[in-house]
Design a protein around this nucleic acid. Structure first.
Lengths: 200, 200
DNA sequence: GTCAGATGTGACCGGCTGGTAACATTGTCA
DNA sequence: TGACAATGTTACCAGCCGGTCACATCTGAC
């Protein structure tokens, strides 16, 4: 157990890392603070000195995931400066990895979606992060010349959320590995704008 | 509280109905047997006389949802006898309602997916039900003349699971209302078979 | 009426979990 | 060395929850 490969990290960071990992694997409700502290090679008391409550820890995790998502967009722009179409194509591929690689931090968001009590303090943060992501992706689609950018983004949202859920329940052999293919087809459909009811 | 509009239903059925509703809303982990019994206008003891454990109740709920899904396919065949293309088009529309209407029984399945412990007794049932659904949908696509039926089914799976998750977390205003549009575009794409990398 | 089976009621147990208190340990800086 | 802050350890509390027990109530069949 524990994470012996980064001894230099202070307890607070180790706790956040462990919490993100375990929240992802077991759900927010499925893991206890004791287990988180132990996995972080720390203890419950230190956890509560840094985070006032389990919810507080959860929010911190989400915020860290959000800041990493920020880096995602920066990398996209740096890889294809000024080329929105290339960025969109690259976005699909990276999102595909993002979903199927085990280190998928966004999974935090739907782990937290289990908190159906809509007044949960984490919901606000989650909504804010999600809105930011959607705004950026919509702008990217628009820059890439997609007319109905909002529609495409909604469709891509369904695909990516479905892929995350499916990955967690079905794993390697599941449908989530087809995310990239499906996303590219949708983008094609919106880019060419030729909607015929081909079936029937 | 309680469900006063069906007094004739025996306690066992009321408990199943209440459990499905509450599992859906709060997740399997988020609701207690006491609350289920009370919502069913019954009590915990009667619950445990009919179901050996909470897990047992969960499995019964999933099985009932599965049998209703069976009725779904029967209705589809009756509505368009022998016309696979029409059935596929209708499937999309019905699945769209299925997802966005609050009475979405399939949500049980991903509520149960929170049970990440892979040895949970409900997992077996869930996997079995899911496989059956996929098989039927694949056959329908094939009958409708889709060559790469498995690929299309995987893509539709992602869409529908994403729509369910998104509906729960975002509701009316969310992306899940675009499910039908996205699904039709995907079907078009697979039916016409003309995949050009239109973007870029 | 009465008998049996199903249902309802309240109390209870044990384990887990979020959270706290008190004290011990370590490490660092002067 | 001494002092201080951060961290670790142990024990504990309270509440919730899955599950059980003993007993009361109801209902329909005969």
């Amino acid at each position: 157990m524990t994470i012996p490969d980064r001894p230099a990290l202070p307890p607070r960071d180790r706790i956040i890392d462990a919490a993100r990992d375990l929240f992802r694997k077991h759900g927010v409700r499925g893991i206890g603070v004791d287990a988180i502290a132990e996995a972080a090679d720390s203890n419950k008391m230190t956890l509560y000195r840094h985070f006032g409550s389990k919810d507080d820890l959860l929010i911190t995790c989400i915020e860290k995931a959000a800041s990493e998502a920020e880096a995602f967009w920066v990398a996209l722009e740096e890889a294809h400066p000024g080329d929105a179409k290339a960025q969109l194509r690259d976005w699909v591929k990276r999102a595909g990895d993002f979903v199927t690689v085990d280190h998928c931090n966004c999974e935090l968001i739907d782990a937290a979606a289990q908190l159906v009590e809509s007044d949960h303090p984490a919901r606000r943060v989650i909504e804010q992060v999600r809105r930011g992501q959607l705004r950026r992706l919509t702008q990217l689609c628009r820059d890439a010349g997609i007319a109905e950018a909002e529609l495409l983004v909604d469709a891509l949202t369904l695909l990516i959320e479905g892929a995350r859920v499916n990955w967690r329940s079905a794993g390697e052999g599941g449908a989530s590995t087809r995310f990239v293919d499906a996303a590219e087809r949708l983008i094609d459909s919106f880019a060419t704008q030729q909607r015929v009811l081909a079936v029937g």
